[in-house]
Each structure stands twice: as C-alpha cells, then as structure tokens.
C-alpha cells in the first residue's frame, strides 16, 4: 500500500444529481437534486431507509449507472484508478481462488503477473487471508469473503473506495471486527471512502460525516458532523453521551420521514 506521507484520496463534487428509472408503472425518481461535496481522505457515511436511493447514488459514482441529469466531478489527485467498489454480498467470483479474486482488478488493468504478485501478497496479508490463497470463496466464511472483497478493492489502490453496506450480512461480532479493520486500513491509506449503511450506529462508528437521506424521491435531508477523533475504539465510543446524542439526532430525522411517509400512505 501507500507508506509515504499520507497522500489523500479524491475530492468529489456532486451537483444537481438526479436519476429517473422507467418502469412498467411509469417514471420513478430514485434520487433528486443531490448536492454533495466529499473532502479528500474523508470517510463519508450515507445513511437512510431502503428506497432512499443511496445505492443508486453509489452505483452512479461507480460508473454502473448513468445519471439522468446533474454533474459529478472527481479530482483523483493523481491516483491512477478512480474508484473500486465493495458490494453487499462479496461478489467474489466463485470460479477464482482468493488470490485470483484479489488480483482481478490489477489483471484487468494489464498489470503484469510479476508486478501483481507482491501487491496481492500484501493485500492478502493486510486482511489475514494469506493461508487461504488457494481456497475458493465457497470454502470461506461470510466474514472471510468480505475481507477478500475489501482486499480486492484496496489492492487496486483507488482514489475512492465505494462501499455498499459491505457488512450488512455479517453477524455482530464479525461486523465489529471488520469495521475496526476497515478503519485501520483507511487511516493508513488516506483514501476517500463513501460508505452506505442503513445502520445509524455504523455511520457514527465509521464516518467523519453522516449524510442522512430520505425516500420518495431520494434526497439529502441533513448532513451531520461526527467529531470523534481517530483512532476510534468502537465499543468505548458507543457509551459516550455525545454518541447517544448524535444517534438520537439522526433517528429524529429518519423518524419524521417515516411518519410523513405513513401519513402519505394513509391519505392515498
């Protein structure tokens, strides 16, 4: 990875982003008028209920969808690869070994096998999968698969890391361990991270800021600063008064939204 004086990740500047989906029942506005700036090296969490368009936003950033209107500027600050995404289900290819999976993003970019080997080696070591290099994903636990997916993203050395609820399918202990590992790796590499979650706790554990989104259409309701210093101890953090205060604050925003949606349904 990067051991030089911490070079920061990309700056992201999103203005007026809108995405419409055509469905059989008409046009659905997935996200509407999103304006958002992400600082270089920031860990930004986006939290919101399902259907608020947070995944759509991430997929547009990943180049997997195209926005209907609006603009995204990404200043990669000299990093060769703009972004790498970690998906909800690991998305490791079942037909490739752990090693081949982690090297995939380098192979696609034409990095020679000789140059690939030490980088994959380092990434495997980083997430503790060295012993499992020849295993296929279906021989690994869910937590190990997700580690592999994180290594696959980090090994490409992207300017932005996009993460779509990467630990949602894991049990609580595995989730905490992986969250801590992720923060550790992020602190060491200075990458910009955009992290989607529906868990308020997770957003507070990980983020520098939490973007709270609401649904129908998906838009940004509020952006909340999370002032906890790094490195963070997640368990200790969770019992501080400020943590509870921020959690309540985000919950209120979301609660309003849920009630408003209910009222809308009742009226309809």
């Amino acid at each position: 990875m990067n051991s030089q004086p911490p070079r920061k990740g990309a700056r992201i500047d999103i203005t007026g982003l809108t995405k419409l989906f055509e469905t059989a029942r008409g046009t659905v506005q997935a996200i509407s008028g999103i304006d958002l700036k992400v600082e270089p090296g920031e860990f930004l969490c986006i939290v919101g209920p399902s259907g608020c368009g947070k995944s759509t936003l991430l997929r547009i950033l990943a180049g997997l969808e195209k926005q209907s209107s609006g603009k995204i500027d990404i200043d990669t600050a000299g990093w060769k690869i703009e972004n790498a995404m970690v998906f909800q289900e690991s998305g490791l290819f079942p037909w490739m070994s752990v090693e081949e999976n982690i090297g995939f993003g380098l192979m696609t970019r034409g990095v020679s096998a000789a140059e690939r080997a030490p980088r994959v080696e380092a990434a495997m070591k980083l997430v503790g999968l060295t012993q499992f290099r020849r295993h296929f994903p279906n021989q690994l636990s869910g937590g190990m698969r997700q580690r592999g997916a994180i290594a696959r993203a980090f090994v490409t050395d992207p300017a932005v890391l996009l993460m779509d609820e990467p630990f949602a399918a894991l049990d609580a202990q595995n989730r905490t361990i992986l969250q801590e590992e992720l923060v550790r790796i992020w602190e060491a590499t200075g990458k910009t991270v955009v992290y989607i979650t529906h868990s308020i706790d997770e957003a507070l554990f990980l983020g520098d800021r939490a973007v709270v989104m609401t649904a129908h259409p998906g838009r940004i309701k509020e952006i909340i600063d999370i002032p906890f210093p790094h490195p963070r101890n997640l368990m200790e953090l969770s019992v501080t008064p400020l943590f509870g205060e921020l959690k309540m604050k985000i919950w209120r925003v979301l609660e309003d939204e849920v009630n408003r949606a209910r009222a809308g349904e009742d009226a309809a």
């Binding site: 990943a62 972004n83 790498a84 995404m85 998906f87 998305g91 993003g105 696609t108 696959r152």
Partner: peptide, 15 residues
C-alpha cells in the same frame, strides 16, 4: 453482481 464487479474493476469485453 459478477457483471457489476467486472465492469467496476475495469474488465475489457475480452476479459
């Protein structure tokens, strides 16, 4: 998801 991963990680149509 496998198609998404391949696209996001820059796979050419040959790969």
């Amino acid at each position: 998801i496998y198609i998404d991963v391949a696209r996001n990680y820059g796979a050419s149509s040959r790969i």
